[in-house]
Amino acid sequence: MRVGIIGSGTMGRAHAAGWAQTDAEVVGIATVDCGTGEALSAEYSWPCYDSFEAILPEVDVVDLCTPTHLHYAMVMAAARAGKHIMCEKPIALTVAEGKEMIATCRAAGVRLFIAMVVRFFPEFQAAHRSIAAGQVGAPGVIRLTRASYRPQRALDDWFMDPVKSGGMMIDLMIHDFDQARWLAGSDVERVYARSVTTEHPDIPEDHALVILRFRNGAMAHVEGSWAYPKPMFNYKIEVAGDNGLIEFDNTISIPILFHKHQTAAEGVSDVALASSPLTVDPWAVEVMHFWDALTHDKPFAVTPEDALAALQIALAARESARTGQPVALEPLEVA
C-alpha cells in the first residue's frame, strides 16, 4: 500500500519520522506551500505534491497532518475515494461532523484512525496498565495537567484561530479528556469548566480548569494551558484509587538536564511537544501501530469513537466555561 502524508507542519514532521521507520512506500508529502514542505520531503527523498487533490489518486492511505478545520472535508474526500485514513486529532470541530466522518468511512469500507498520540506515551500506558492490573483499586479522583506556552507558527497561526483549531480547550485538552475517560474506564456524565485569558486577549481562553464526573462515579480534574511562560511544558498524571495512588510529573522524570550558563537567547520550538528520551518516540510508535494494524487487519488501540467521545467532552467543557453552567452529556451513537 502506498502512503501519502498531507501537511508538513509540526505533526507532518513528527509523522514523517515515524513513516521512515516502517516498510511503507511513502509516495510523497503534500503541502500547500513548499517552504518547510520541500525541506521535509527532501530530508526523506520523497516527492513533494502541491495539494491534497494531487496526491490523493496516487495513494492507498492518507496521513492527514493538517489543521483541524480541514479534517472533515479531507476525511470525507479520502473515504469517498476509497483510501484508508490516519488523521491528526481532534477528529473534527463538531460532534455531527465527527459522526458523519465515522459513518462515511464505515460505509466506504475504509479504516479511520485518529492520532490520539498521548495513548502512545509510555507513562500514560504504564498508568493504564497499573490500573488494569488492579494495583491501585478502582479510580476515584483522576487529575491531569497539560500546561505549556502559546503555540506560534510563523506561516499560518491557525492554533490561535478558534474557528480553525477550536481553541485551547479543544486542541490541547482533548488529549487529557481522552486519557481521563480511558483511565477512568467510563464515559462522562457531567462537565463543569471555567476558563480565562491570562495574557492573550486575542484568543477566548488560554487556561482552563475542568471537572468531569463519570458514569461509574469517578471524577476528574483536567487542567489545560497555553499560558505558561516559555519554555515550560508540564504534564502530570494522578490517579487516586480506592486501594492506591499513581503520581507522575514530567518535570521530575527527566533523565538529562542541561543547566547552562546564560548565553545569547536560544530558540524555543514553535509548538511545545512532550519529549523524554525513548528508543522510539510516541509519534513513531503511533505511526507503526497504525501501519501494523492496517496491513495485518488488526484493531486500532484507540478508535474513532474514542476520539469522538473526547471531542464531545471538550466541546461540553468549552460550552460550560462559556455559560457557567454544568453540561450533561448524551450517550454518543454513530449511525
Binding site: V141, I211, M219, D242
Partner: peptide, 18 residues
C-alpha cells in the same frame, strides 16, 4: 462534585471532592 469514592462501605461521609 463530592462523594465517598475511597472508603465505600467503610465510612458514611465523603472522601473525594473537586
Amino acid at each position: 462534585e463530592i462523594d465517598n469514592l475511597f472508603y465505600k462501605g467503610e465510612i458514611d461521609v465523603d472522601s473525594a471532592g473537586l
